[in-house]
Structure formats: structure tokens, C-alpha cells
């Protein structure tokens, strides 16, 4: 029975892994590998050319650098803000905290078009229009971070706080010395999610960054439906996140992942 379930699990995992493997493989072929696998008559040749052509595209490389700049800056701001926000949501006993949590959740559900015009107006009022800082700030204060941080902090039993209080009066010290080490694995996951969000931004930079030289690569790659089979670009664009995931995975044990 165990063997059967193991086989089922392997098949399921292969199903999840297959698209990533196909994408990676397709990026190393001239011609469309996917069409070939579908049975269409297509010229196919293994080649690095998709990558070499891409590295000749100076505009794409500049925008990739912008993506890295925006994503990393957002992360640096967003992590501490998320932790502090999560702390407030988890430990505050004031009335209305539940409402704030609900609001955070609701805002996660709304598409960005709902607030696109007001956000544009505010960026102009604050003279942040056409600056990457506008994008970074909007993303740094995204509701996702505090919500996930709240879930992480909530999972830590109250007894841990109380026990630490016996030895130390300072809440800050308790938080840094006793609570943070327990949060670290969850924070690694939070880092990944926040980076992925910032990496995937489309509408926010479209509206707030009219200067194409400041825009991230997600906008350029967004026009996938032109049918140009941008597998190499897709793989390259996924690499930083995969790298970050690899680093996180190496430092993280499987039992550390506990965000519920």
C-alpha cells in the first residue's frame, strides 16, 4: 500500500514539476518545442540562440536591473514593516483590530484597477510620480506582508511571551531574543512571497513610471500573447526567484515551514 501511495505521490509531484521542466527545455531550442510535442511539423534545433539574442537586447537587460532594484528595495522596506504590522495585529488588544485584519484581507482581493486613478493622483500630489520610489513604497505597504506576519506571530503560543517576561521587562528585547528566532523560518517564506510579488508587478509601474528606462522587465515580458514563444525570457525572468528559493531552501528545514 505504501508503495502505491508513494507512486501516486511521485506522479503528482512530476505533474507539478513538468511545466517547469518543459519551460526550461523549450528555452534551449530554436523553434517551438511545445508545438513539436503536440505533433505539429516544426523545425527544431537545440541552440543557445534564444539566450544570446536576449542578452543582446540592451533594453531588456536594463529593465531586468530595474526589476532587481525595485524588488530588493521593496523587500528591505517591506520585511520590517510587515513584522511590525503583524506584531500589532497579533498582540494588540484594542478594539477594531479585527476590522483592520478584515480590511487588509479585502484589499488583497481587489484588483488594482479599483484604486489605479486615486493612486496616480496621490503620486502626483506627493511628487513621487515617475520615480521608482513610488512603486517601492506602494508595494512595501502592501497588505500581504502584515497579514502573513500576523499569522506567523499568532502561531507562537502566548506562554512564550509570558515566560520571557519573567526574565526581561523590555518587550523589544523579548521580541528580538525570544520571539524572532522562532519567526525566522516563517520570515524566510515571507521574504520569498514578498519578493515574488514585487518581481511580478505590472500595473503599478505601468501607471507610475512613464519613463520606460525606469520600468521593470515584467512590463516588457507582459506582452507574451504576441505568440513569440518567449521561453528564454520567461526562464531568465524566473531565475532570481528560483535562486532566492534555493538559498532559502538550503537554510530552511522542512519542519520549519509552519505559517499556519
Amino acid at each position: 500500500m505504501k508503495k502505491i501511495t508513494a507512486c501516486v505521490l511521485v506522479v503528482l509531484l512530476l505533474t507539478f514539476a513538468l511545466p517547469m521542466l518543459m519551460l526550461f527545455a523549450a528555452s534551449f531550442f530554436q523553434g517551438d518545442l511545445i508545438s513539436f510535442l503536440k505533433g505539429e511539423t516544426v523545425f527544431l534545433q537545440a541552440s543557445w540562440q534564444r539566450y544570446t539574442i536576449m542578452f543582446d537586447n540592451e533594453e531588456l537587460l536594463i529593465q531586468l536591473m530595474n526589476s532587481i532594484k525595485i524588488a530588493l528595495s521593496t523587500l528591505i522596506l517591506q520585511l520590517p514593516l510587515s513584522v511590525l504590522g503583524g506584531l500589532f495585529l497579533a498582540r494588540s488588544s484594542i478594539k477594531g483590530v479585527g476590522l483592520i485584519r478584515v480590511l487588509l484581507l479585502l484589499l488583497l482581493l481587489l484588483p488594482f484597477q479599483s484604486i489605479m486613478v486615486p493612486v496616480f493622483k496621490m503620486s502626483r500630489w506627493l511628487n513621487l510620480y515617475d520615480t521608482q520610489l513610488a512603486v517601492i513604497l506602494m508595494q512595501a505597504f502592501s497588505p500581504l506582508g502584515p497579514l502573513i506576519a500576523w499569522l506567523l506571530i499568532r502561531a507562537i503560543p502566548g506562554e512564550h511571551w509570558e515566560a520571557a517576561l519573567l526574565d526581561c521587562k523590555s518587550q523589544l528585547t523579548i521580541f528580538c531574543r525570544a520571539i524572532m528566532p522562532q519567526l525566522l523560518p516563517g520570515l524566510a517564506v515571507l521574504t520569498l512571497l514578498c519578493f515574488a510579488e514585487a518581481w511580478n508587478l505590472v500595473e503599478l509601474p505601468l501607471i507610475l513610471l512613464p519613463d520606460t528606462e525606469l520600468r521593470p522587465a515584467s512590463l516588457m515580458l507582459n506582452d507574451i500573447r504576441s505568440g513569440s514563444n518567449q521561453y528564454a525570457e520567461a526562464v531568465l525572468y524566473a531565475l532570481p526567484i528560483l535562486l532566492l528559493y534555493g538559498i532559502t531552501g538550503i537554510t530552511l528545514k522542512k519542519e520549519d515551514i509552519s505559517i499556519v
Binding site: M116, V117, F120, K121, R124, E203, L206, P210
Partner: peptide
């Protein structure tokens, strides 16, 4: 120049 219709729509509606 504004070459994207969503950006033009946003700027027009925003009245800035």
C-alpha cells in the same frame, strides 16, 4: 508622448 492607452486613460480621469 503617452503611448499606452491605460496610462492615457488614467491621466485623463485623474484630472491632475
Amino acid at each position: 508622448d503617452i503611448l499606452d492607452n491605460r496610462v492615457l486613460a488614467t491621466e485623463m480621469m485623474a484630472d491632475e
